[in-house]
Design a binder for these strands. Sequence first.
DNA 1: AAATATTAGATGTATATACATCTAATTGGA
DNA 2: TCCAATTAGATGTATATACATCTAATATTT
Lengths: 149, 149
Amino acid sequence: MSAPRPPSLPCLCASLRRTSRKLTQIYEEALRPVGLRATQFTVLQFLSLAGEVSQLQLGQMLAMDSTTLTRTLTILHRHGWIAKHRGKDRREWRLGLSRSGEKQLQNALPYWEKLQADLRTQLGNQRWDQWMQMTHDLTTILAEATIPN
Amino acid sequence: MSAPRPPSLPCLCASLRRTSRKLTQIYEEALRPVGLRATQFTVLQFLSLAGEVSQLQLGQMLAMDSTTLTRTLTILHRHGWIAKHRGKDRREWRLGLSRSGEKQLQNALPYWEKLQADLRTQLGNQRWDQWMQMTHDLTTILAEATIPN
DNA sequence: AAATATTAGATGTATATACATCTAATTGGA
DNA sequence: TCCAATTAGATGTATATACATCTAATATTT
């Protein structure tokens, strides 16, 4: 028995969150063998690409509240995957990947790359590219938008 | 000082989740006056539109694990917004809105409608419609997709 | 420089989310 | 009918997420 087709939802937030849940389930299944959750993989990969940043900067770039990052970083640090030291401003953390964190990211990358490739095939190049572009665009627009009260 | 532009992310999941976080923050701010979280509003609105469904069906249509719904429904029921009774199959719940739940949804709708309208303006009709379509489409594709191991 | 305001991150709390496992009810077979 | 297998939802646990509030450090004002 196949699942019923998902109904369309009138709320953009509801519709996007539903897609996000579904996609996250798929990515987390793929990353389960390496023991990374979607958010954890995202932080590791981002630090690898962006180099050293503060917690606040990391939060801004991922549209994640800084206090949310406190919890995520605690988990990653507990595993030994994060290198952190105080900045010139001693309130802030300068964050990067530890040696072990680089290693863990390398462990995860093959699973991630395979899934990305499989999804690209499923969606077709055009739709895949459109999604990559549109998610980035909307994030940018929302970051700059002034929503009236 | 304006926030730095969000960098593009190579991971579809990361990019979509970032958009989802940002959009959720905006919707939750708009719904705060009525005391509803995004997920809670979604469930109330969905039940209003779909009528009586079981917990499992609700979960399938929202791409939400049934055990996640147990927690969300507990909260909504505590507020008195959910009507539930056992189905012919006595393991399942038949779920609907209570009188008070209808009322609460009505309270929320003006805030939701205003935000939807404001966002439609910000994005432009074309991009808005594209988003409504693409989120629905991707959810459908992912629900039917067979991702290789 | 001293007092005040602001800022970075931590902590308390509530909800969101899903997996593993459990219980109770139902279904399918022998 | 009786038993095994399946199924709906509940519960335990871990993480994700953000707001309100707190502390310590920095920046601003007088």
